[in-house]
Each structure stands twice: as structure tokens, then as C-alpha cells.
Amino acid sequence: MRMEVSHTFAICAYKESAYLEECIQSIRKQSLKTNIIMITSTENDFLKGISDKFEIPLYINRGERGITQDWNFAYQKANTDYVTIAHQDDVYFKDYAKYVVKYLEKQGDALIYFTDYAEIRDNKIIRSNKLLRIKRLMLYPLRFSMFWGSRFVRRRILSFGSPICCPSVTLVKKNLPSIIWEKGFRSNEDWEAWEKISKMRGKFIYNREILVGHRIHEGSETSIIIKDGVRTQEDYIMFRKFWPSFIAKILTRLYAKSEESNQI
């Protein structure tokens, strides 16, 4: 019974996403059934209707709004050991939850668990492109379980960018603080969180199976942020956590070129 209640998908929903039902359906079709909740700070009839249709509890964040505030709110509303903050535009392949429990039940000191992912463009699943290959290369050391607990290895990986797919991450609540994401970032809130957690004692568990489909489209927050230049500013802030200024500037320019893959 425990395996059925140890994990929660906490869906962060905003306004009226055309992809929300597809996200929910992918979660409902998991080979291991888990808890599902939905949170929003943009309360509306559309989301209430979705909540009623799929019988998913809907929690309204009536406090401070923002991406990080909503993610923290969702994290705190989940009452299970393992929590995945699901993004409304993305999908989870059927064995995602099964592997979460399979890996984490064996690793009592895990901090986060995450998987490889594919991109969804024009409703087509793209399992390999230049950006995905680069991220897989960056994560190569974590294919080996001997490095899961190495703070040195994961900080070296993060010092060159964030190859960790945010919606693929499951957080282990008992080993983490109550606030995961800090205010102030619009684009690199996930990278900032992994950098902070990377300093802690415990494991970053990487499953190289492709278990998440991350949607790239013009309406996504990532695409909007790249267009208005916020991402580049935040990239520099993050690189400065690892490198002196002149190296951080070089890496920021190189990273900006890779972000072109997120443009439609």
C-alpha cells in the first residue's frame, strides 16, 4: 500500500492552458498510481471545471504570487515523501512514477531524483537534438551511482549550466527544507534551487531513461523569458556562483547560443 501513496504529482496550473488535460491524462495513465493535486494562483472557471472533471483537489495560492511562490506552495501542499512539481504543458511517460518509487525506496539519503527527457514540438516527440545531447553529456558522470552522493561532481556539472530537466525532478521532502525555490528569478529558479541543494549532504539520483516530455512552444514561460533577455541576466548571476566574473561572462555568451533551441 505504501508504494501507492508515497508520491504526489503537484500540478501547477495557470490561466487556461490548452495542454493541461494532456498533462493530467499522462499522470492518470501512470503504471503506478499516485496522488494528484493541482494548485493555482489564477483561480478561474476553467481550472475549477478541470478539477471537477478529473476529481483532482484544487488549492488556491492566495498569498504572494509568482513562479517560485506557487512551486513552494505546491510542494508544501503535497503530503507524501516524494513530490514532483508537474508543469501544465508537459507530459509524463507511463513508468515515471514507478521508477520514482523504485529508485527512492532504496536510497534513504536522496535529495532529488530526476530523469532524462524528450522535447515536444508541434506535438511531435523529439528524443534527440543538439541541446539534448549536450545535456546528456554533462550528466554523464551521474549515470554511475558511485557519484550520486558526490557534492564535488554535481557542483562541477552545475557550474557549466543546468542540464537537469525541472519537471522531471522529484523532491524528497524528509531530506529537504520547507522552502525550495527563492524569490527573484524568473528563468533560473530551478538552477538556483539545484545549486543550493547541491551543497547539502545526500544524493542526486539520475535515471537516464526518457520519462518526461517537455513541451516547447511560443506561449511557454521559457520562450517568453528568452525573448525579453531576462534569461541571459540570470545566467550570469548563476555562473558567478561558481566562477570569477571574466569566466562567467564567457560562459553566459556560450549558454545564450544554446538557448536558441528553445525558440520556435
Rank of each mutant, 00 (worst) to 15 (best):
A10E: 01
L131K: 11
S245F: 06
G149R: 05
S150Q: 11
W194K: 01
L131C: 07
Q233S: 14
K173I: 11
I126V: 15
T252C: 06
L58E: 04
W181N: 01
Y82D: 05
S245H: 10
W181H: 08
L158Q: 05
M200E: 13
R253G: 12
I210T: 13
G184T: 02
T170K: 04
P177S: 04
G66P: 01
F9L: 00
R121A: 08
D122W: 08
D228H: 09
Q30I: 02
E189M: 04
S51K: 09
S31E: 13
S198P: 07
R240H: 02
E189K: 06
E21P: 01
Y206W: 04
M38W: 07
I250R: 13
I112W: 03
K53H: 10
E21H: 02
M238K: 09
S41D: 15
R201D: 14
V5M: 11
N44R: 10
S220F: 02
E43S: 11
W181I: 00
R151D: 14
L171Q: 05
W243L: 10
H217M: 09
E182W: 02
E221V: 11
I60M: 07
Y103I: 01
D95E: 13
L132T: 06
S6R: 14
R2A: 11
S159L: 09
I112M: 10
F239C: 03
G161K: 06
S261Y: 15
Y75T: 00
N175L: 05
R201H: 15
D52N: 12
D81Y: 06
I180N: 09
R121K: 14
L47K: 00
I11N: 03
F204G: 03
I157Y: 03
L142P: 04
M3P: 08
R253M: 10
Y103T: 00
G108P: 10
R28D: 09
E259R: 14
F9V: 08
F73S: 00
I237S: 03
L58Q: 02
N129T: 06
T40C: 02
Y92F: 14
M1I: 08
E221G: 04
K33R: 13
A78F: 02
H217N: 12
T34R: 11
L211G: 04
L47S: 05
S220N: 06
D81F: 00
